[in-house]
Amino acid sequence: MSLILRNVSHSYHKGTPLETAALRGVSLDVEPGQWVAVVGHTGSGKSTLAQHLNALLLPDAGEITVDGLKAAKGSKDLREIRRRVGLVFQYPEQQLFAESVDEEMAFGPRNWGLPPDQIGPAVDQALALVDLADLPRDRSPFALSGGQKRRLAIASVLSVRPSYLVLDEPTAGLDSRGRRGLMTLIDGLRREGIAVVQVTHDLELALAYCDRICVLERGRALFWGTPQVVVEQLLDRPVQGLSLPEVLAFARDLREKGFNVPLSWDPYEVAHALAKEVG
């Protein structure tokens, strides 16, 4: 049971003079309960990759399987793949449309053909997952705060009980409180066994929260691994448009000046090492 990409390539405007390769041979594994970050500069192929994960886009070359189901042209499994892999676009609150929270939430399960008596429980469960269980159900989604709207949009995707959740820049525009709240929420999803793929250009956020990081550059998966592994690779080989966390870059500069500090992005770790060194 996992989401597997093998050598996936995708080009836009194929066969025209405008043809551009957005993904070039990307391989990736996402296991149940794992929190994976896809990090890269604008234009690196992050969103294209996200849209492959639930078969919204299909690869030109390579292979994608979701729990053994094949995402390819003509595959009869595409519908089930799209249920198992929920996709939350950037600024998902812009897609809210219904007159009440209940209507908004029931739209997905109803469309997926869930029996009417199961829709209520599915909606309850999804709202509980995003900490909106107490929301009055007759409230207009448009009367909610920005952070609530975003969580409602995520809940509407969770209402069909996906095993994987893909979020494109989920923290964009949120303040630090909202950002931390959302990270706690995602952590809770993963404890429920849902695998999360988070597309972001915030390397610092990915290092702080995610289990595995995939660094994209011009459509190639340059680095893939745990935060520590990826950081070592990034120090060896900078990636276009992706700046190192300030503390990490500072630790590297300190080492070059002969200070014995760890290559860490944790400010306290670096400060304590420095105190021992100098003090």
Partner: peptide
Amino acid sequence: ATWGLETPPFIRLWQE
């Protein structure tokens, strides 16, 4: 944090 503001990591290092 009570004002919803997060001290950037490098500032925290500087403070330490």
